[in-house]
């Protein structure tokens, strides 16, 4: 199943963080394939962090929610921390009403804050936030 279809979702490596994003058109098979590829990359590249930008996702149903939850668990087992960033307000409201809490999935307001949480110092605007969390190479 893994290589049955072309992977449309790029996974970019920045240091020991993998950066990727989900798109709207992803169907269930593609989502599963994406999760598998990402898991393999985490293991192969010994990533410490994974940022999944979902700011373009217009809906998250129970299948995508489950995919994200499982991804987080698998990544944790492989020693990486997953942050899902940029969920749109209507999506968050709908998920909450559905009763899906994405337990165990870390979230961030946007990709930038997600990268900061993963240890990336955001260099361009140092004065604003004051002391951030510890930075990582």
């Amino acid at each position: 199943m893994t290589d049955s279809r072309p992977m449309d979702v790029p996974i970019i490596r920045l240091g020991d963080v993998l950066v990727t994003g989900l798109i709207n058109e992803l169907d269930d098979k593609a989502a599963t394939a994406f999760a598998e590829e990402l898991t393999e990359r985490i293991a192969a590249e010994r990533a410490k962090g994974v940022l999944i930008d979902i700011s373009r996702l217009e809906i998250i149903d129970s299948f995508v929610a489950r995919t994200l939850t499982e991804l987080s668990t698998m990544a944790r087992l492989l020693g990486a921390r997953v942050i899902v960033a940029g969920m749109r307000p209507p999506v968050a409201i709908t998920l909450a009403e559905l009763g899906l809490q994405l337990a165990g999935v870390e979230t961030a307001l946007n990709a930038e804050q997600g990268m900061v949480a993963l240890g990336w110092r955001h260099a361009p605007r140092p004065p604003e936030g004051g002391n951030r969390r510890e930075t990582l190479g």
Partner: peptide, 12 residues
């Protein structure tokens, strides 16, 4: 609870 969950999902 729903509101709190939605806020958390947003990353806050």
């Amino acid at each position: 609870m729903q509101t709190v969950n939605a806020v958390r999902l947003m990353g806050a």
